[in-house]
Design a protein around this nucleic acid. Structure first.
Lengths: 201, 201
DNA sequence: ACACACATGTAATTGGTTACATGATTTC
DNA sequence: GAAATCATGTAACCAATTACATGTGTGT
């Protein structure tokens, strides 16, 4: 049962809009949920085959044009049922992995300038993404406000913006902290008695 | 060159505190960076062997006690150099994957109660983690404020708290939005002209 | 004619989790 | 002596990325 989540992403975007090719599905994913989800061709094409074999999607080279060498797909009723079933089950958390924070955590092992560079880079990225999301909003509003899914899309968008802004704020105070310095016991400072493990899964 | 990041996590925790066994390293990781990083035994033990073969760590069954059937390791100068080199290179971003947001994005395909349940779950998790981090702080301060790495640990901790708080705030407004309802075009609403792809990598 | 975007796919590899198997030491 | 925790490891499997290979349609 626990099939790859790629399958559900495909079902999801086909549920919103039919007759998309593998190429286009990937683009759609990038453009719409790119902020928090990615898919590669190496994953998409095989999954399309599999989904078609299971009749959750069907070839639908139809409507617009089959003028290109492209294979369009649409979701089937079974596919829709499958998507809905998946959506209903509690989401699964992926193990967290943030290399930026990891490097920052070990910052004492290297020159402060290294950590400063990491934070700066982080900041730049944040600003880029925030600009990107802020730019996306009015366009999305203009283009898709009438779609029933719109409120949900806005919800994820506003989540993204909120996280980005909070990260940006933190990064500014972090830069301040990292501009001041003085660089020690034998009991493990990371594993002292009574410190509970961080809840993660 | 591009070795598994598990190796660097191990080097990092051994750099902070020597003479830890695989078991203990894993616990240390959980307790200290668990909020944003995880490691499994299946990854740690083979990596320890590899690192020892490369002389980046060395067996050091010594100091405290070898009373248990346990193999302790310490970082070597070469290992330290390797860690430092890795820390200095720009962090790599992992492709984002947030199943919660994905399910929320497709929320229109199912009953609103489903999305509400997801957000509620998300909220609960957030509160748990925030409590966990807030509890961690004073303890960490008491136990390790004298360690040179402490400011960096606090930085990652405060990042976590900031993100959590902002997510929590968002979740509250999301719950409001999701408590009001009415549930269409043929051009792809997710892929309208002029919408730029979200910056992610 | 050239370049670029569209389009589809496969193979190799990685990075990682999970489950399994086993056993020692401590604590009650 | 039973249970919990400490402790080490392997095998099977999986999701996913990357690089490679190939070709078509459109616009300049």
């Amino acid at each position: 049962m626990s099939r790859s989540r790629t399958a559900y992403v495909i079902l999801g975007v086909l549920a919103i809009h039919s007759n998309q090719s593998g190429y286009e599905i990937r683009r759609t994913v990038q453009y719409s949920v790119g902020y928090f989800w990615g898919e590669s061709y190496g994953q998409i094409y095989p999954t399309l085959k599999r989904l078609e074999a299971e009749s959750l999607i069907a070839k639908s080279n139809s409507t617009t044009a089959s003028r290109k060498r492209r294979q369009e797909y649409s979701i089937t009723p079974a596919g829709r049922a499958c998507l809905e079933a998946w959506l209903a089950v509690p989401y699964q958390e992926d193990p967290p992995r943030d290399e930026f924070l990891l490097k920052l955590f070990f910052g004492n092992e290297v020159s402060p300038s290294v950590s400063i560079a990491h934070v700066r880079r982080f900041q730049d990225k944040l600003r880029l993404m925030l600009a990107s999301l802020e730019q996306l909003e009015p366009l999305a509003r203009a283009n898709s406000a009438q779609y029933p899914g719109f409120p949900f899309w806005m919800l994820t968008l506003s989540f993204g913006k909120a996280q980005l802004r909070s990260a940006l704020e933190w990064s500014e105070s972090a830069m301040e902290v990292l501009s001041a310095d003085e660089p020690a016991t034998t009991s493990n400072p990371l594993l002292a008695d009574g410190i509970p493990a961080v809840q993660s899964a």
